[in-house]
Amino acid sequence: MELFLQQLFNGIMFGSTYAIVALGLTLVMGILNIPNFAHGHLYMLGGYCLFFFAGTLGLGYWAGMVLSVAALGLVGVLMEKFVYRPLNDQPHINAFIAAVGSLLFLESFALVVWGPQGLRIPNPHPQAIELLGITMSVQRLLVIIGAIVLIAGLHLFMKKTIAGATIEAVAQNREGAMLTGINVNRVSAMTFAISTGTAAVAASLISPIFMLSPSMGAILGMKAFVIVILGGMGSVPGAILGGYLLGLIEALGGGYISAAYKDVFAFAALILILSIKPTGLFGKREV
């Protein structure tokens, strides 16, 4: 029982990271129709930015996190403007190639700047608490709480502010939004900045527990892609639910069944679900 609770806790913590990362990705994929395969690598860059601000410059964890989010937001704006916007009128596969180019670029950028050796961000909250017989470190709890706060905040932003409403408008009808005077390019840049910013939040929350390496985003990015498709492109609840689901599947599957094949479960589940429901769990009928 204790083991089960421990695995549940692990699964939820992991699911929180997946949920935030997938949330950012579903925004650009669903709303802007950009298959941003480099999303995991932006997450990686977010972690390194935190290292730079909090570790190298010594500004402390929370200030480092804010600056990292801001830096990644800027990277998002630049990426949208110089990489994806010129490809707007081309087939999606071309944007996908550009994404592969971006991820190669980002990974070797980190390699050149910070080297191949793993880097550590000092854990700001190394304490641990015992509850119901399971051990939880404070930083891990922070990941879970941070994810909930971020999701709630984003929801309020989308529903209660004008900026959020314009994003929704563009998502529903790009031409229509343009006709009502919305600057679609500005909305695209904003959406992209939010997407990369959330990736930086995820990286900042979780990297004190782990270690930074240039290739840390590759598998995560792919999983986020899977979650987004599983939940249905552009579906925010789909991404959140899919994220938590994947975290739990992995923790329980990896703990109880087979650690070597734990990734297979998630990917096989996706094939199965899409074979039955070709547009994902929460997807709109046709893309």
Partner: peptide, 24 residues
């Protein structure tokens, strides 16, 4: 089963199959 899906969905389903073959 997978050719029933379209566009990006087909891309991801085949990517998943590829990753499974790789892991196996």
């Amino acid at each position: 089963p997978t050719l029933r899906t379209r566009g990006a969905y087909f891309a991801i389903v085949t990517l998943c199959f590829g990753v499974i073959v790789w892991i196996v």
